[in-house]
């Protein structure tokens, strides 16, 4: 719980530092979509990682994928 709060806090801090850039950008909606995508996925991932059962990591996925492709050759 504390970790989650901490992660959210850090990402909010990041957003505060980015505020001037966000405001100066002309295509605001597009920027916000991308921006929030990263922020939210960072937060969600961070919180999920803190749980006892974190999601399957990308390296395993990539390894499986590579093995599948190489194996098929």
């Amino acid at each position: 719980m504390i970790t989650a709060a901490f992660i959210i806090g850090i990402f909010i801090l990041i957003m505060i530092t980015d505020l001037p850039y966000l405001i100066s950008e002309k295509k605001k909606s597009r920027l916000l979509i991308i921006y929030l995508f990263f922020i939210l996925s960072g937060i969600i991932l961070g919180i999920l990682l803190d749980t006892t059962n974190p999601p399957e990591n990308p390296s395993t996925l990539i390894t499986n994928m590579v093995n599948f492709i190489i194996g098929s050759n």
Partner: peptide, 19 residues
């Protein structure tokens, strides 16, 4: 995405890459 300044996305991307 056709934005103008990479600096706007920088910290969020980095935050994501840290996680």
């Amino acid at each position: 995405s056709g934005l103008s300044d990479y600096k706007a996305l920088l910290s969020s991307i980095t935050g994501f890459s840290v996680t």
